[in-house]
Design a protein around this nucleic acid. Structure first.
Length: 303
DNA sequence: TAAGATAAGAGGGACAT
DNA sequence: ATGTCAGTCTTATCTTA
């Protein structure tokens, strides 16, 4: 799934935050702060806006879908976002405004109300998490996107909101290469890791998301700074990980464990006196895991 | 005290039934 | 849909240097 957002930062009509997001697939606009969904595409810009030709032509402002041919995975709103008729011709101005009124009604109809409430709850929690986990806006927006899709598919029903939200957040982190573990997320929202994990897998399956495997190197800096390791050790560990990657002994292993073991091995090679325990604590894995990976690395790399 | 070894148990993926 | 199996990680405990 393509998570492409543009025109971030315009003001939400409901909560006032500058966090409107455009979904390039469906062309919908919604608020990353409170979840408010807007289907209009011109009026939303605020009362001070004038309708010059530039504004209408400027695709980056109106959030025109980049690919109308892209299938929507059954998630499109009842009234589609493209201002074109069935033959692909643009609608007349009169028709356009009519359709847009209908879309507005569509988004306000009763069907959306519980969804709406769910959103507010989820997004206020998300706002709290943002600060706690030091997350970027991009990650938050992706989370909002994923969560909204999950909600539309009815995946939240029967599951806890924080659980699914946490899963969406974790997915967003994975997707954006932000090194946050399932443990980080689950401990912050007070949901068992197991549950978040289950929701996460569900999201991957149901929303057809493709997540890259986290590069252990991403975790290295974090562990190294927590355990106060030297620059030299870090560099050495980096080459170890790269070599390990080439030998294909990294698949299926916990990236965090691998990164921790590489750092430990590097410490030993560099003659630094760092215990397994310190690194294990910093990495959030057990000493045993480090030992196992450490052994594997040593054998495979003939050190 | 740090590191290594061993064992039991949980959770999930692959695969067959 | 359900059960089994191999592999991974965690926790706990004991031994070794």
């Amino acid at each position: 799934m393509v998570l492409q957002t543009i025109n971030i930062g315009s003001r939400c009509a409901r909560c006032g935050k500058e966090s409107m997001i455009t979904d390039n697939v469906t062309g919908e606009r919604f608020c990353g702060g409170c979840g408010y969904v807007i289907i209009e595409r011109i009026e939303e810009s605020g009362p001070e806006r004038t309708f010059s030709k530039d504004d209408i032509d400027n695709k980056s402002r109106t959030g025109s879908p980049t690919s109308l041919a892209m299938h929507d995975m059954g998630l499109a709103t009842i009234i589609g976002p493209a201002n074109k008729d069935s033959t692909g011709k643009p609608l007349t101005a009169a028709m356009k405004s009519t359709i847009e009124r209908l879309r507005t009604w569509d988004s306000r109809s009763q069907v959306h109300e519980p969804v709406d409430r769910n959103f507010r709850q989820a997004f206020s929690e998300l706002d709290r998490l943002k600060g706690k986990l030091a997350l970027s806006n991009v990650v938050i927006e992706k989370t909002a996107y994923i969560y909204r899709k999950a909600l539309e598919k009815g995946l939240v029903r029967g599951r806890s909101i924080p659980g699914v939200l946490g899963a969406a957040l974790y997915a967003a982190c994975r997707d954006g290469g932000t090194p946050r573990t399932l443990n980080d997320v689950s401990s912050e929202i007070n949901v068992k890791r197991k549950d978040v994990s289950r929701c996460y897998r569900l999201l991957l399956k149901e929303l057809d998301l493709k997540m890259p495997v986290v590069d252990p190197i991403k975790y290295m800096a974090r562990i190294a700074s927590k355990a106060e390791l030297t620059e030299k050790v870090k560099r050495r560990a980096l080459t170890i990980l790269q070599d390990a990657n080439k030998m294909e002994i990294t698949s299926g292993k916990d990236p965090m464990g691998l990164a921790a073991a590489a750092l430990y091995l590097s410490c030993v090679l560099c003659g630094e006196n760092t215990t397994q325990k310190v690194i294990a604590m910093a990495a959030g894995v057990t000493e045993v895991t480090i030992r196992n990976r450490y052994k594997g690395l040593k054998e495979s790399l003939k050190i």
